[in-house]
Simulated assay, not measured.
Amino acid sequence: MRVAIAGAGGIAFAAAAFVSENGHAPILWSPSGQRTAELAAGQALTATGAVSGTYRPKVASSASELVSGADAVLIALPAYGHRTVMDAIAPHVTGEQVVIISSHASFGALYLSKKLAELGTKAPIVAWGTTVTTGRQKSGTEVHVSTVRSKVDMATLPLSASERGLAMCRALFGDRFNEKDDLLAIALSNLNPQNHMGIALCNLTRMERGETWGQHQNVTTAVGRLFEALDEERLNIAHSFDLSVRTVREHYHFSYGVPMGPVGEMAQVLAERGGGPMGPTTLDTRYVTEDAPFGLLPTVLLGKLTNTPATLHEAGLNVFSALYGRDFRKENNLLPELGLENLSKSELQRLAREGWTGAT
């Protein structure tokens, strides 16, 4: 199948390598064109690690070229680029295609649902709780894939298209998907914001100094306790919606195959295995610039909507804003278009199941 991949960073490159390995035909598009310049010039994409090989994905020069003739459209770039990409691809998406968001953040699926509804297009939108692969882009033609996750939570908007959404995900990425109740469950299944907050906040000076440091080994006992305290806030919000979501311990267990236990201990098992991801070496990292406005903020708003305060999440958002000298609350360009803070709990639940077309 033809797989349109919007993005040209580590996740997009890893996805292109993965679907190529599975016999599909990816085409990449970068809004700026800068990160795909070498591939567009004819150089091959080299992947190492959990996916290994040399591949030749096509490169699109426009959103129209990217989407035209694709069976699926994969949005694979940081959340601060989602609105730009969604606005660009929406006029070209058809009801015959499936759009996949890897990974979902800040109710981006609702934003895209609203855009498509305005255009009269009914296409399934699949939201993943996390990415299938983890890794780092090494250059304009190289990506190192650290992990291919064995389980990924997903939901399709609207729920009536769930069978179609699941079938497409399995066809492209294998039998690794766990269907959740609805989009709200996915919004509350994304552990990246809380985990990245713990990692970045507790290792900020390492990042600022540009040190080389292992991520797992620095999720110490104390940092692990912070992970679990943040996790409790997220789980309490999910419980208020009568939703079942994976715990942070289950995330470590199913994603990395380590025995269940306190997060600090599980991380140290991974550290002893070696080969894990390295921590950020700059303050300009998506662990903060993406996850603070597009991850922590939505959780804070959901906590207020359900009278289940996410105190630690909000504290992290405020502390990061102080450390960076910028207001991360104002950097989310998706939520203002949705008016999440003005919705009732039941209205949000309906939207999370039916999408914008089904809302009244």
Rank of each mutant, 00 (worst) to 15 (best):
Val3Thr: 15
Ala6Leu: 05
Ala8Ser: 12
Gly10Trp: 10
Gly10Val: 07
Phe13Asp: 09
Ala17Phe: 07
Phe18Asp: 02
Gly23Lys: 08
Ile27Met: 13
Thr36Leu: 10
Gly42Tyr: 05
Ala47Gly: 10
Ala60Met: 01
Ser61Tyr: 03
Ala70Phe: 07
Asp71Gly: 14
Ala72Cys: 14
Ala76Gly: 09
Leu77Asn: 07
Tyr80Gln: 12
Val85Pro: 11
Ala88Lys: 06
Val93Trp: 13
Thr94Cys: 12
Ile100Phe: 06
Ser106Asp: 08
Ala109Arg: 00
Ser113Glu: 03
Ser113Thr: 02
Ala117Asn: 05
Ala117Met: 03
Lys122Leu: 15
Ile125Val: 14
Thr134Gly: 13
Thr134Asp: 09
Thr141Arg: 12
Thr147Asp: 14
Lys151Asn: 06
Val152Tyr: 01
Ala155Gln: 05
Gly165Ser: 13
Asp175Pro: 14
Asp182His: 13
Asp182Arg: 07
Leu184His: 03
Leu184Asn: 08
Leu184Met: 13
Ser189Asp: 07
Leu191Val: 10
Leu201Thr: 01
Asn203Ile: 10
Thr205Tyr: 11
Met207Gly: 11
Gly214Leu: 15
Val219Asn: 01
Thr221His: 07
Gly224Ser: 04
Glu228Ile: 00
Arg234Leu: 05
Ser244Tyr: 10
Arg246Thr: 05
Val248Glu: 04
His253Thr: 13
His253Tyr: 06
Phe254Asp: 06
Gly257Trp: 01
Gly257Leu: 06
Met260Asn: 01
Pro262Asn: 01
Val263Met: 00
Val263Arg: 00
Val263Leu: 03
Met266Arg: 00
Gly275Gln: 15
Gly276Thr: 06
Met278Asp: 15
Pro280Glu: 05
Thr281His: 07
Ala292Asn: 10
Gly295Gln: 03
Asn307Phe: 11
Leu312Val: 09
Val319Thr: 09
Ser321Gly: 03
Gly325Thr: 05
Arg326Ile: 12
Lys330Glu: 14
Glu331Leu: 15
Glu331Ile: 10
Asn332His: 03
Leu334Arg: 00
Pro336Thr: 08
Leu340Lys: 02
Glu341Trp: 06
Asn342Pro: 07
Lys345Asn: 04
Leu351Cys: 08
Gly358Lys: 02
